[in-house]
Each structure stands twice: as C-alpha cells, then as structure tokens.
Simulated assay, not measured.
Amino acid sequence: MSLPIIKYCPGTLSEGFDTYSQTCLKRLFNGRKVHHILPYDSPASNPETDEVFEDSRKTISISGVQEKFSVLQDKNKLRLVKEGERGTHILKPIPVVGKRNDQMPANEHLTMQIARQVYGIETAENGLIFFKNGTPAYITKRFDIKEDGTKLGQDDFASLAGRTPQTHGEHYKYLGNYSELFQLMETYLPAYKLEAPKLLKVLIFNYLFSNGDAHFKNFSILETSMGDYRLSPAYDLLNSRIHVQDQDFALDDGLLTRNMAQGKIGQQFAILAEKSGISRKAFDNIMSLMLTHSDKVERLVKACFLNGSTKRNFWQAYQGRLKQLSKT
C-alpha cells in the first residue's frame, strides 16, 4: 500500500492540510509537531516489526476484540512502549476480522469526529496515523493519564455492575438493557443529574450511527480533580454495521426492559429519559440536536478517509436511522 495523499487534516478533517493541523496537534499531542507517518511498518508486515509489536502487546490491559497497542509520546516522536512504561496513546491498526476491515480505522475516526464536532459529545482525542508502508491506524489519547504521567481512576460499567467472565459468563458485557447504566450512574456519580443527559445523548448517537457494539465495557466513569467521578469521554464509537451484521443495540434486552420498550424508537428514548429522571425539556433539546445538522455530517463524511463505497454506505445508514428516529 502506498502512502496516502493528504488533503484534509487526519485529526479534525479540516480542509487544506497535508498533515495534522495545529488544532489537532494541540489536542492530540500536547502541541508537539508529531508527524502523521510512523517510522515503522504495520503489524504482520515484516518479522522485525512484529517482534516490537509483540513486546508492546504484552504491556496493554485494555480489553476488546480489536487489537490495541500502547504508544508513548516522547516529545514529538511516538514509539511503542517497553515493559514497565505507561503509554500515553492507544494505537489500533487494521483488525484481522470483520468485513471491510481495512476501513475500520477511518470509520472509527470519522464517527468520533462527528460525535464531537456536530453533536458536542465529549470524546477521547483521536486521529488517523499511517505506518510507513501506507497502512492506516486509529490513534487515541488516553484520557486517564495526566500530563505528569500519573493515572486517574477509571471504571467501566461492567466493573461497576460486578460483572466478569467468571461471574456472568463470556457474554457478560452484553447482558441487560441500557436503563441499568443510569441506575449505576445514580449510585456512583454525585453529579448524576448533570451527567445523565450526556449518557442519553451518546445512546441516541449510537443508534443514529449504527453502533451496535456499545456494551457495558464501552462506557466508563472517570476520576475528577476533586476526587469524585463523572462520565468519561466517549470512546469506541463507530458504525459497526459496516463490519458485522449486528443488532440495533448491543445489549441483549435492548434499550429498555421488554415490557417498557413500546412504540417507535424515538418514543422508547423518551421513556428511557423519563425513567432516568431526565426532564422532558432536556430530552426534547437533545432530540432536536440529533435530528438536525445533516449538512455538517455530510461535510465530514466527504472529507474522511473512508473509500468511496464505504462513504456511501455510512451516509445511507445514517439517513435511514435519521428517518426512523424522526418518526413520532
């Protein structure tokens, strides 16, 4: 694969850049002039590189099906971590599973940028980066690591619910329904009333952009400077339907308990909001936001690094979900 021709910032997708924009560098790399091409080939491309990746693989404990590598930013350079080091970023190369797997890094990057730029959802800082053989990877900055290298407390919702493969089986993170997330937040977050609408917005976003893998481990709470907890920035957002034939919702019971999941999808979100103590006014404001700004979504889709057919599929999927969500 040859190196791509860059016309849009591989971070913000702003037009007129042949590398990262200053805005992206500030957010993703603390203002350092990091290059968008890594100094090594992608995994499984040559034996020497594979040995380095194998060492890095042993140092990361973040769960998930997609392979992840821990990366350390050293001034304006990025390198895979060594044993005993704590990474500042997570690198996600093209996975070995799924349809159109070569499009997955660009898919996640685009979806995360839409969440932030169009809908104001706080997300983990992210961008695309390329190995020297031209293969893309998704890169994200760890929000649980402070600039001085110390770590903030973070717990995903599976941990909060006391679920592990040992106690609840291999399917543990997909059990239940999304109203249970709000119940856990009420228990652990002092500022629940401020945080609950943020979670609802992410759930509506996941439906709108066909993210069918938003399970209990893909939501978490994060320690604040005051020592209490809040909802963490969103992460692992992508149109999963492009790669696997999954359901509308990742959790087995869907959005709500089966006896409460009545009416069209917009009505179900309204029930979830009411059940979670979110005011009707706040819900209406969220829905109004999520049902508008198609022009901004279209601009980012056109600027993204997906190939032509996958761009069309992404856009058509969004249009279909938008139509369903707008029905009353």
Rank of each mutant, 00 (worst) to 15 (best):
H89W: 09
E67I: 14
N76Q: 14
I60N: 08
L72A: 06
I94V: 15
K58P: 00
H89I: 03
V96P: 00
T88Y: 13
S63P: 06
P93F: 07
K77S: 08
D74M: 13
P95N: 09
Q66M: 02
Q66K: 01
L78G: 02
R57F: 11
R79N: 11
K68T: 06
I62E: 14
R79G: 12
L91M: 09
L91T: 04
Q66S: 06
D74Y: 08
E85T: 06
L91Q: 04
L91R: 01
Q73D: 08
T59E: 13
L72E: 04
T88I: 09
D74Q: 14
V71D: 00
L91N: 05
V81G: 03
I60H: 04
I60T: 05
H89T: 02
K75V: 05
I60C: 07
L72N: 08
Q66A: 06
H89P: 07
R79F: 06
K82P: 03
I62Q: 14
R79M: 12
V96W: 00
K58N: 10
L72W: 07
G87P: 05
V71E: 03
P95W: 08
K92V: 14
K58S: 13
G64K: 09
Q66T: 06
L91E: 03
R79I: 07
I60Q: 04
R57T: 04
K75Q: 12
V71N: 00
F69K: 01
K77E: 14
I60R: 05
K82D: 10
I62C: 04
Q73G: 07
F69L: 02
L91V: 05
D74H: 09
H89Q: 08
E67G: 02
K68A: 10
E83K: 15
R86L: 12
F69Q: 01
E85H: 07
V65T: 14
F69Y: 14
L72C: 08
S61A: 10
K82G: 13
R79D: 07
I60V: 14
T88D: 13
V81L: 02
Q66W: 01
P95E: 07
P93Q: 07
F69V: 03
V71T: 13
E67Y: 05
G84K: 08
E67L: 12
Q66C: 04
H89D: 08
V96F: 02
P95V: 07
F69D: 00
R57A: 11
L78V: 10
L91G: 01
G87Q: 05
G64L: 11
R57D: 10
V65C: 08
S63N: 13
K68D: 01
S61K: 15
K77C: 05
K77L: 04
L80E: 01
L91W: 02
K75A: 08
K68L: 07
K77T: 08
H89M: 10
G87R: 07
T88K: 15
R57E: 05
I60A: 04
K68Q: 13
R57P: 00
V71G: 00
K92N: 08
P93K: 09
K75L: 09
G64R: 14
K58A: 14
I62Y: 11
S63D: 14
K77G: 04
G87K: 05
L72Q: 11
I90L: 15
S70F: 01
E83R: 15
D74R: 13
N76L: 05
